[in-house]
Design a protein around this nucleic acid. Structure first.
Lengths: 219, 219
DNA sequence: TAGATTGTTAATCGATTAACAATC
DNA sequence: TAGATTGTTAATCGATTAACAATC
């Protein structure tokens, strides 16, 4: 993880790496803005963004003004152009191909939703190891056998793999993915995955998020 | 959101509110520890915890030592007792009842998994509005019609609702939940939900997490 | 113009980390 | 004992926020 490296220029314009906090907040703004755009909203104020993200409005303005003057005083920010700007800052303007593993309930839910598509991610392949599932259609995908993963990862330039597989299957699969050259593993199983340092694992943990929310309710 | 209120005592022993950062990190430690325990691991060092959580090992020791001397020098922390200690600190030692809405792919995936159960959350009811689904069995649950939600929420002391419903259904359902007295809404739809200030909404956003991970890969 | 909201400053506060003594 | 790892200090650095001038 070189994510902790911090740039010494703090005006943010230098094309240098964002700090962890800034990158995380920009991502959240993008989430809200994307949905606001879908709902036909044309402008949004830092205060409205604050209401949805729970980030202080001054900080939102500060985060954004580091990269340019995107807002209009007295009006707010144009939703549409702010989405483009943040995508540019996060360097995620393009399309990114992802491979999805596991065609169970969770895998099918992910494959049929547009949560990833809305942010420029395209599921290009859905894999399973169950021969009964291979060949079946799930949304726009035909389930492929996981033994083909290396070929597909190479051909389709896949950097991200999403794991919706049972816990015991996760580590062996992760090993194969690392071997095939995947750099980011999004893990929906609960398994603790061992990977080389150049590979990033993000383990989704709804229950942990819930514990956190509950703490502030209970106190 | 009173989550930003900060206590003025910083030793953490006073039974006062944790800061946002500390509470978030403790939750993450708990996630890893819970899984490590499942895998039969008996002790764990701050360095190992750091490898899995990407939190600096000094900070982990610092976070923990604020509440007591849980570790043994030269050995590490006992996984089992550390889990109990953190649960105590986060005040989530008990059981918490949750209601799950939506018996589609995602709802069924959540209902059949033990991600919530592992952390003391018990799904006590699964709702849908589709009459075809009502009455069907999903894991240990029988799908109930959402019109019964108010009764169930009252009877079962439900504080948390998990929404695995289509976007357009989310806001009307949130309104009903607020009316019924639910305090925490865990939103798996993409809809931006409007709720009164005493209710907390957490919107899950895998694509946003992915954007964030991708940024650090791309730079 | 009057009202609203941005962009920016300056001050404060908390988070982070290297280093190391303590001790298992 | 020797090695390992915790608990804690002290210094630094970045995040946060109130306040307000600028301006749409």
């Amino acid at each position: 993880m070189s994510a902790l490296d911090q740039s010494t220029d703090h005006d943010g314009r230098g094309g240098d790496k964002l700090s962890l906090g800034v990158a995380a907040r920009l991502s959240r703004y993008l989430q809200v803005l994307t949905q606001a755009k879908k709902m036909g909203k044309e402008t949004i104020s830092s205060q409205e963004l604050s209401d949805y993200t729970h980030v202080n409005s001054t900080q939102i303005r500060r985060d954004l003004s580091g990269f340019g003057k995107f807002g209009k005083r007295g009006v707010g920010y144009k939703v549409d152009s702010l989405v483009s700007q943040i995508r540019k800052i996060l360097r995620t303007s393009g399309q990114h191909n992802i491979a999805l593993f596991g065609a169970g309930n969770l895998g099918r839910a992910i494959a049929s939703s547009d949560i990833f598509a809305d942010h420029g991610f395209r599921v290009v392949a859905l894999f399973d190891t169950d021969e009964d599932k291979v060949g079946r259609e799930v949304g726009p995908h035909v389930v492929r056998h996981a033994r083909d993963l290396k070929q597909v990862v190479g051909e389709e330039d896949i950097v991200v793999a999403v794991l919706a597989v049972p816990n015991p299957a996760a580590q062996p699969l992760a090993d194969e993915l690392v071997d095939a050259g995947v750099k980011i593993i999004f893990n929906y199983s609960e398994a603790l995955l061992h990977v080389p340092p150049e590979v990033t694992v993000h383990t989704s943990s709804p229950a942990v998020d819930l514990l956190y929310a509950l703490y502030f309710y209970l106190t």
